[in-house]
Design a protein around this nucleic acid. Structure first.
Lengths: 132, 132
DNA sequence: ATTGACCTTCCAGCAACTGGAAGCCCCATG
DNA sequence: CATGGGGCTTCCAGTTGCTGGAAGGTCAAT
């Protein structure tokens, strides 16, 4: 398989696959022509990485997850711990965004949004000390 | 005022203030010794930017907001539109994170997390095709 | 032989900072 | 008046995770 096929089948852009090789997330063989030669196992790993990334794991976490995946003697506790920590980070991020959202929604609601210059949104940004 | 005072009073790191000047988000005067000389209005603007950033506005959005803030003839409708778009982006981000969270929480729940290697989390990442 | 689609490498850039080095400047103390 | 420590300056590099583009080699088909 060449990189184009793998890109299509894994859903990852070819550029991204090259990047993953460059940072040592995956090691690839080369054909006589210099082209990367992908085995099924490489495609499999890349799909694994793609799914982990879609769940928001960082590249370094993906590296660890891959290592655990390939370690037949792993303890699932470690995987669970890693995933649990990541879950906490996601929760923190959600909470942060929801707090922003609340403030912003309040301000948007309070703004007339017409052709006059008076704007509670700008007033809040300017003053900090605001209503309700 | 020197940068240290402004950093403390605005809550922004000195490095960040220098960066904001470098990218032209704010223009600062210089004293005879080469030090940045901050006026009250500069502090005010920086606090404005800090609050906008805390609400998740990008630097470019901050630039626009500042311009609107300083334009006495602005139409609040434009501010509201900008904020409304940003609100939509926040909502999209929250939805994305909540979707991740749901999958991940499900997997974490399903994993025994003991000293045995069997792990539904890794199985899901490997296979994609998973349970319930 | 010549397209045209692939593949290769390398370099640059995005957002929004952050850290560190090297070197002035200013004030207070001995 | 020298010295020490803190604060200020600039510049360069690194962060995360790619993405775009240029210049050039390869391959399969016409």
């Amino acid at each position: 398989m060449n990189i184009g096929d793998v890109a299509q089948r894994s859903g990852l852009p070819a550029k991204t696959i090259r990047y993953y090789e460059e940072i040592g997330l995956i090691t690839l063989l080369r054909g006589a022509n210099g082209y990367r030669a992908f085995r099924d196992s490489d495609l499999h790993k890349l799909a694994f990485i793609g799914r982990a990334r879609a769940l928001g794991f960082s590249i370094e976490e993906c590296r660890t997850l891959l290592a655990l995946y390939e370690d037949a003697g792993r303890e699932s506790g470690e995987v669970k711990r890693l995933a649990g920590e990541h879950l906490k980070q996601i929760d923190a991020k959600i909470a942060e965004l929801q707090s922003m959202r609340a403030t912003l929604a309040h301000l948007v609601h309070a703004c007339a949004g017409d052709d006059r210059p008076d704007c509670p949104i700008l007033e809040d940004l300017a003053g900090g000390a605001c209503c309700s």
